[in-house]
Amino acid sequence: MRPILLCVLSLPLLAHAEPGVAVAAPVAATTPALPLRARLDKETIRAAIAALPAERHPDPGRREAPALSATAHDAFARDFAAARLPDCLHAEGLRNQPTFFLGGVLALPFIAVAKLRGVCR
């Protein structure tokens, strides 16, 4: 099992390994590799930027809202709605009272417990 796992994990290393000696050896030997700073000058950078396709947004006036954050108004409204005490006989009456695994008609005794505890009106 371990030799198979080792072989599978070494496949990406083999894919990125340098090819044999026969591939472009004379060209690499005759021209020394220049550092990146020497290969890039202003004209090369300008030519590369000019070759890029223009990026156009389909609707430039539309801005995407952050998906995970909310505005201060939304956060305040959510916190304010969660802070008020629900009515005991409505759907959210047992929001602050645990009913464990019981639900429906079996949760009726918990309405009285919630009223006595003061977690609903």
Rank of each mutant, 00 (worst) to 15 (best):
L5V: 04
L6H: 11
P12L: 00
A15N: 03
H16T: 12
H16G: 11
A17D: 08
E18A: 12
P19L: 00
P26M: 02
P26W: 11
V27C: 09
A28M: 12
T31A: 13
P35E: 02
R39Q: 12
D41A: 08
T44G: 09
T44Y: 02
T44M: 06
I49W: 06
A51E: 13
L52E: 12
P53Y: 00
E55D: 08
E55P: 00
E55Y: 14
H57L: 12
G61C: 07
R63K: 08
R63Q: 02
A67S: 09
A70L: 14
T71Y: 02
A72S: 15
D74T: 09
A75G: 03
F76E: 06
R78A: 13
D79Y: 08
D79I: 10
A81C: 08
A83M: 01
R84C: 08
P86M: 01
L89W: 06
E92N: 15
L94D: 00
L94M: 01
R95V: 13
N96D: 08
Q97K: 04
T99I: 07
T99L: 10
T99G: 01
F101T: 03
V105M: 11
A107W: 01
P109M: 03
F110Q: 00
I111Q: 05
V113F: 06
V113C: 09
V113K: 09
A114S: 09
L116G: 08
